[in-house]
Computed example of a mutant assay.
Amino acid sequence: MDLQMAVEMKISSLEVYGDSMLVINQLLTYYEVRKDDLIPYHQMATQLLEKFDFVMLEHVPRKDNQMEDALANLVATLALTKDEVLNLPVCHR
């Protein structure tokens, strides 16, 4: 979903940080995808990544990724219309 959005926004250069070392290594083709139910997702992600001029994929351990994960989960719960804008301040405690 996020890759498709980046394609639609005509972004040419993309940095992807993921907390699953397995998924990052599968996308980098270091590992093969063995679970049949995950193959279509891998194929779709690979096809979308090919649409960018530059892509960097990097693993970030979950313990170092808590704030980003919380923001991603928050954004996933928001349902905005095409013309609706939401300003969301981010504060550190």
Rank of each mutant, 00 (worst) to 15 (best):
Y31G: 02
Y30T: 12
V33E: 06
P40W: 07
Q43L: 15
Y31L: 13
H42V: 02
M21T: 05
Y17S: 12
L28Q: 14
E8C: 09
I11A: 05
K10Y: 09
E15F: 10
E32I: 08
L27W: 04
L22C: 06
P40N: 04
L38W: 07
R34V: 09
L22W: 04
I11V: 15
S20L: 11
T29W: 07
Q4W: 12
T29P: 00
T29K: 15
L28V: 02
E32S: 13
S13Q: 10
D37N: 09
M21N: 06
V7W: 14
H42Y: 15
E32N: 11
V7I: 14
H42E: 00
Q26W: 07
E15W: 14
S20F: 11
Q26H: 06
P40R: 08
E8P: 00
L27E: 01
D36L: 13
V33F: 04
Y30I: 15
K10V: 05
V23P: 00
S12A: 08
L22V: 15
K35C: 02
M21Q: 14
G18T: 04
L22I: 15
L14G: 02
Q43Y: 06
V16F: 05
P40Q: 03
K10H: 13
D19Y: 03
Y17N: 13
E32F: 02
E32H: 08
L38P: 01
L28A: 10
E8I: 06
K35T: 01
L28E: 12
S12G: 05
M21R: 11
D19G: 04
V7M: 07
G18R: 01
A6Y: 11
E8A: 14
T29H: 14
V7D: 02
M21Y: 03
V7Y: 10
L3R: 09
L28P: 00
V33H: 01
K35Y: 09
L27I: 03
K35Q: 11
S13F: 11
Y17W: 13
E15V: 09
I24E: 04
S12Q: 14
Q26P: 03
S20G: 10
E32A: 09
D37A: 06
L3E: 06
G18L: 02
T29V: 12
V33C: 14
S20T: 10
L22K: 14
K35I: 09
V33S: 03
H42P: 00
E15A: 11
V16T: 03
D36A: 14
E15Q: 11
S13M: 05
L27S: 02
V7E: 08
K35S: 11
M5S: 13
M9K: 14
Y17K: 15
L38E: 05
P40M: 08
